[in-house]
Write a protein that binds this DNA or RNA. Structure first.
Length: 272
DNA sequence: AACTGATGCAACCGCTCATGC
DNA sequence: AGCATGAGCGGTTGCATCAGT
């Protein structure tokens, strides 16, 4: 049994522009496609061990993988390796902790910069972001963002606002200043020319042009035909260049040339 | 020293995606 | 085309540790 339907919902969008100003753009209508389907648990949770892994379990898992590989099937892995764990738990433990190429320890300034750039461009696609940071896992990056980087970003922007009457980035500490320099447009481009740059923003005329540049997390879809465009697509949309050109024909205010390549949209804001 | 709230991070959960039949 | 299954993802939770009182 599989069914799906669409939903419009009112939402609040957090926008951060390059001057460090935080703006809440209210009354967006977020368009989401909902799917309702059957979900089959991967294992019987009453029969597997849960919680933190013991050193013995780690050794068993590591030894087995080093000798035999993962076998390409994590569901049957615990039985073969002699572990009383869920296959998903084994996979997670290996990928996030036991893999030999995992990098532990603090993130560098350069890594911060890469995370910020990618988060700006593609949002919380942690696996994609992690793929640009050798040795880092999606879980690592996600935790780092949620516990440190996000706060650092907000603190830094607040400091800038309170310490400056103009758009200069005068801050109260060298650390904040360095962090702000990192937020300025930089040259890091995670995608090759062939892969094309992914962008996920459409400027929203309801908010104003000043939000188009810099760190703009708000976007809108404009035109009466928006509903048709949206309905013909699926969630996690990826538009190619032809799509963008077509999109511009429908929405003259949208300048596709600003978006060289693919555009990823999870939620599409709809201005009725 | 004892308590309490904050923080960091490993692990889990629920879901979608991809693939094969 | 539709279904079943396993892999992978992102959000959330639980718990150990830390810092402050």
């Amino acid at each position: 049994m599989l069914s799906s339907h669409f939903r419009f919902e009112e939402a609040t969008s957090l926008s951060l522009i390059s001057s460090g100003t935080l703006i809440f753009a209210k009354n967006f209508f977020i368009f989401t496609k909902l799917k309702i389907n059957c979900y089959t648990p991967c294992c019987d949770k009453t029969k597997v061990k849960r919680g933190p892994w013991s050193p013995e379990e780690d050794t068993t898992l590591k030894n087995y993988v080093e000798k035999n590989g993962t076998g390409g099937n994590w569901i049957t892995f615990p039985q073969k390796a002699g572990l009383k764990r869920c296959g998903k738990s084994c996979r997670l433990r290996w990928l996030n902790y036991l893999r030999p190429d995992i990098k532990h320890g603090g993130f560098t300034h350069e890594e911060d910069s890469i995370i910020l750039t990618l988060y700006h461009n593609i949002g919380s696609r942690w696996s994609i972001i992690a793929s640009h940071l050798p040795g880092r896992t999606d879980n690592d990056v996600k935790n780092y963002w949620n516990t440190k980087l996000k706060k650092k970003l907000l603190t830094s922007s607040t400091t800038s606002l309170t310490s400056s009457n103009n758009n200069n980035f005068r801050t109260t500490s060298a650390e904040d200043s360095d962090f702000y320099n990192m937020l300025m447009p930089y040259n890091y481009n995670p995608f090759s020319v062939d892969q094309e740059m992914m962008v996920n923003q459409i400027p929203n005329p309801e908010i104003g042009d000043e939000l188009i540049n810099g760190f703009n997390f708000g976007f809108g879809l404009i035109s009466q035909e928006a509903d048709d465009v949206v309905s013909s697509t699926t969630e996690r949309l990826l538009f190619n260049r032809d799509d963008l050109i077509e999109f511009q024909e429908i929405n003259p205010i949208f300048d596709y040339s600003k978006y060289s390549g693919l555009m990823a949209l999870d939620n599409i804001s709809y201005v009725p």
